[in-house]
Amino acid sequence: MKKIFIDEQYCIGCRLCEIYCQVKHSKSKKILKAFREDQPGTLARVLVEEIGSNSFAIQCRHCEDAPCTGACISGAMAKNENTGVVICDEEKCVGCWSCIMVCPYGVIKRDIKSKKVASKCDLCFDEEEPVCVKNCPNEALKIKEI
């Protein structure tokens, strides 16, 4: 499967990955609307951590043995056996946050803007390349087949 690789030393903390992710997963797909008008709003599924000059972006690692899928009580969080992508079926999710409890990367968010569901990276499965990778100006995020 494809995985996003993180290169801490190239990250400049610009947070463009967060912005493009949020727009990509918004209703309108337009930057101004996504941030100002869309109802319900959406969340970025990638997050940048930063202390001083040190920063990196992180999103779901689509773990081989993903703890979130084993903790999910509704069957919403599941790994696609063919693509390896871990997806939360937002229709099935009941918002119990068991996935948040066991994600060692802390990259599942509680989306209470829309309907209280767990929100996470879907690896932009409908794009050629995840938008965070595509729009990273310094190649701190890369996608590779492994």
Partner: peptide, 13 residues
Amino acid sequence: IERAGIYWGLINN
């Protein structure tokens, strides 16, 4: 509760 799993990881590992 955001990022609670980081603690899970610390305990687990």
